[in-house]
Design a protein around this nucleic acid. Structure first.
Lengths: 239, 239
DNA sequence: CGCCGGGTTGAGCTGAGTCAATCGACGTGG
DNA sequence: CCACGTCGATTGACTCAGCTCAACCCGGCG
């Protein structure tokens, strides 16, 4: 993994989509690339937002810590996704922590550089609006899910989503290509690691998934989709 | 309530804060004011976003309908608050319904007019970023609450919040100045009307609130605050 | 080779949901 | 002005999803 990324990577970042080659060069020139060792905490919730980050390689976990020590995992980011950016553009303190879950590489821009870039390439401002809009819709969706759906459905939906953005085809099925614990899965859906473990075990019985330490392979995505859509009560069986 | 609002009202709208008198006149000139009868549905979830709205007087409910008919209430808006706006600026379909819960008055701007205004008064674009940022933080907070707190705490928090933005002092305490049902309260916090009813009844026993049909008076906000902060289990009493 | 982080699983417990019946306050039309 | 219908609220009885508590297992890693 070279530390000097070419334009092709940057062009895929949604915030910079639609920029021409010169503009992209400009963007790359103002950014700093660096390695993030596994477990490194990149951003701290509550700190002032001074840098915009984009993942080049690896995986970053965005999570919130509650006043009483609980954790809520908001999302996992892969190559091409940005973080810390909206807080910078909106002038608010960082709303969450960011931690590398595997060795990763990122590129980041100081707030001032980003401000310059936006001034020179106004398309970026537009893109950031769309970015914020998408995030808003995502959060509303999750809020709705968490208040109206059962744990099993939320877990199914979450796994499917993760397959979409971090799925790697293997002989066995589709594998989530970064390590994740039951605990973290629980924090994503608002459940305990126990319930997650039980649910995964049950699914494993039915051959829907296959899992081991920090590793999950989905064998039957369709079955998961069916579970996600399942209506209220699974209905009682005949006696 | 006159149908031609003066600048003083508009100046209080966060999206237009910081504009000078001329700019405000410009804003008012491009807007259309109208009455909204109680129960009128102003915006429909999923429709394209073509108008920006600001409440002048009254109260608007923003809610989402789930695929299977459930409702999630996102927020209640009072005078000076905007809705539909971010969807317009971000070019996304309306993410929620908007309904007048009492007879209300609003001012609205067609998307094109708003685009003009932003071009002539770039401060508006900045303010909209802050607006979106605030909304993002709110949603994250609610997501965290709904996954980590119990119904009683969420209800307490929600009532306190509503007091802040719609509380009216009375002899008995602070009253929520618009009608709201147990059902709607439930939809705000992700609970059933039954649980809400039981909780309110219990609080009424303790003299914390007083409630009747579609009406809620908080007698002891401090007690609510205490409940909202309460840690995990209230702990068993000594035998 | 012993420890520790992660996972599994059983046995309760309980917060909150479901089902169901009843009640009271409005509003409305005869 | 009163009778009725409707909408919201209350309350009891029961159920159950998911949590807590707890014991135990397993496989790396130092």
């Amino acid at each position: 993994m070279p530390l000097t990324p070419d334009r092709s990577l940057i062009a895929k970042i949604d915030l910079f989509s639609g920029l021409d080659a010169d503009a992209l060069d400009d963007v790359v020139r103002r950014g700093h690339t660096r390695r993030l060792p596994k477990d490194m905490q990149v951003l701290v919730q509550g700190d002032p937002a001074t840098t915009c980050h984009a993942v080049i390689d690896g995986r970053i976990k965005i999570s919130q810590t509650t006043p009483d020590g609980g954790q809520v995992v908001l999302r996992y980011l892969g190559p091409g996704e940005m973080y810390g950016t909206l807080a910078v553009l909106m002038g608010i303190p960082l709303p969450a922590d960011a931690i590398a879950v595997v060795d990763s590489v990122e590129i980041y821009w100081p707030a001032a550089a980003m401000a310059d870039l936006i001034e020179r390439h106004p398309k970026i401002a537009l893109a950031s609006s769309r970015l914020a809009g998408g995030r808003l819709v995502d959060l509303q969706t999750r809020l709705r899910e968490v208040t109206t759906e059962r744990v099993e459905q939320r877990l199914a939906r979450t796994l499917l989503r993760m397959l979409g953005q971090a799925g790697r085809r293997t002989a066995e099925g589709v594998e989530i290509d970064f390590p994740i614990t039951r605990q973290e899965l629980g924090e994503m859906i608002g459940a305990t690691l126990h319930t997650v473990s039980r649910t995964l075990s049950a699914w494993e019985e039915h051959g829907i998934v296959e899992s081991s330490r920090r590793r999950i392979v989905v064998r039957d995505p369709d079955a998961l989709a069916a579970i996600a859509e399942e209506p209220r009560p699974p209905a009682a069986a005949a006696p």
